[in-house]
Simulated assay, not measured.
Amino acid sequence: MSKANKSINVEIKDKTDANGQAISELFIGKKLIGTIKAISATKYEAVNTHQEQFHVKTFEEGVTLLIKEFHLHH
């Protein structure tokens, strides 16, 4: 018997850090799963809650990566 697919709600909140750079925080429910910030027009940095940094080409790729990392560790 296979499991039914469950939908999850991912919330993205935009804010600025201490240096004035725009950062997007990703939440599943009320739990922070990571942040994404733009390094250049074609490069983003995704950081999970374990402070592991990943360099990705698009914002959407960063969101997908952080969700995968979250589910891998839980």
Rank of each mutant, 00 (worst) to 15 (best):
I36C: 03
Q51F: 01
A41R: 15
E61M: 00
G62E: 07
E11M: 10
A22D: 10
N5E: 12
K57M: 07
D14F: 14
H55Y: 08
Q21A: 05
E61P: 00
I12A: 09
E25Q: 11
T42L: 08
K68N: 05
Q53S: 04
G34A: 06
F59H: 07
K13C: 07
K57E: 07
H55N: 10
H74T: 15
K31N: 12
T64P: 01
S40H: 14
I12W: 02
E25N: 05
K15G: 01
F70W: 09
A22T: 15
E45G: 02
T42P: 03
A38N: 11
L72I: 09
L66I: 02
H74N: 13
G62H: 03
I39E: 14
K30L: 12
H74R: 13
V10F: 04
I8C: 10
I12E: 15
A4F: 03
F54S: 07
L72Y: 14
E11C: 08
V63I: 13
H73T: 15
A38C: 08
Q21N: 11
E69D: 14
A18D: 13
E11W: 05
T16R: 14
H74L: 11
T58F: 08
E69Q: 11
L32E: 13
I28Y: 08
L66S: 02
D14N: 09
E11P: 02
I33C: 05
I33F: 05
K68G: 05
F70M: 10
A22L: 14
L66A: 04
F54E: 02
D14S: 11
I8W: 06
A4C: 08
L66F: 01
F27M: 08
Y44W: 07
V63C: 00
G20F: 15
E69P: 03
E61N: 01
Q53Y: 00
L65P: 04
N48P: 02
I36N: 01
K43T: 14
H50W: 08
A38K: 09
I23N: 07
H50I: 02
K3S: 12
K31L: 12
N5F: 02
A41N: 14
Q53R: 06
H71V: 09
I12Y: 11
G20D: 10
M1W: 11
N19L: 09
T16D: 06
N48S: 10
T49P: 01
E61Q: 03
Y44A: 02
E52G: 05
K31W: 07
E52V: 03
N19C: 11
I67W: 07
I33N: 08
G62S: 12
T64M: 00
H71K: 15
E60R: 04
K13S: 06
A46G: 03
I36R: 00
K31V: 07
